[in-house]
Amino acid sequence: HDVTIHAGDKTIHVHGASEEFLRIIEQAKRDGIHEEELLRLIEELVK
């Protein structure tokens, strides 16, 4: 999957995102996670 995530003034493109990655991001959004926290989460996941 190619994913584009908008968080605040940043746009992150993730190529080859796994289903698990997508679920984590969707869950985080539903939980109302702060955008900066979401960015950190994404950066950890894509290392």
Rank of each mutant, 00 (worst) to 15 (best):
H1L: 14
H1F: 15
H1P: 10
H1N: 13
D2M: 13
D2N: 13
D2H: 13
D2L: 12
V3F: 07
V3Q: 05
V3L: 12
T4M: 01
I5S: 03
I5W: 00
I5M: 02
I5T: 02
H6P: 08
H6Q: 15
A7Q: 08
A7H: 11
A7S: 08
G8K: 03
G8Q: 05
G8S: 06
D9M: 05
D9N: 14
D9A: 11
K10Y: 04
K10L: 11
K10T: 12
K10A: 09
T11A: 10
I12H: 04
I12M: 06
H13W: 00
H13V: 14
H13D: 06
V14S: 02
V14F: 08
V14Q: 02
G16H: 10
A17Y: 04
A17C: 00
S18N: 13
E19S: 04
E19A: 06
E19H: 11
E20S: 05
F21G: 06
F21K: 04
F21S: 10
F21A: 14
F21W: 12
R23P: 04
R23I: 12
I24N: 04
E26N: 09
Q27F: 01
Q27H: 08
Q27M: 09
A28P: 00
A28M: 13
A28N: 02
A28W: 09
K29H: 11
K29V: 14
K29Y: 11
R30G: 08
R30P: 01
R30T: 12
D31S: 12
D31Y: 01
I33F: 12
H34V: 15
H34Y: 10
H34K: 14
H34E: 14
H34I: 13
E35P: 15
E36P: 03
E36A: 10
E37I: 09
E37A: 12
E37L: 11
E37W: 03
L38R: 01
L38G: 00
L38E: 00
L38N: 00
L38V: 05
L39P: 02
L39R: 10
L39D: 04
R40C: 04
R40W: 08
R40E: 11
L41E: 01
E43K: 06
E44T: 13
E44N: 13
L45A: 07
L45Q: 05
L45E: 04
V46W: 04
V46R: 08
K47F: 04
K47P: 10
K47L: 12
K47W: 01
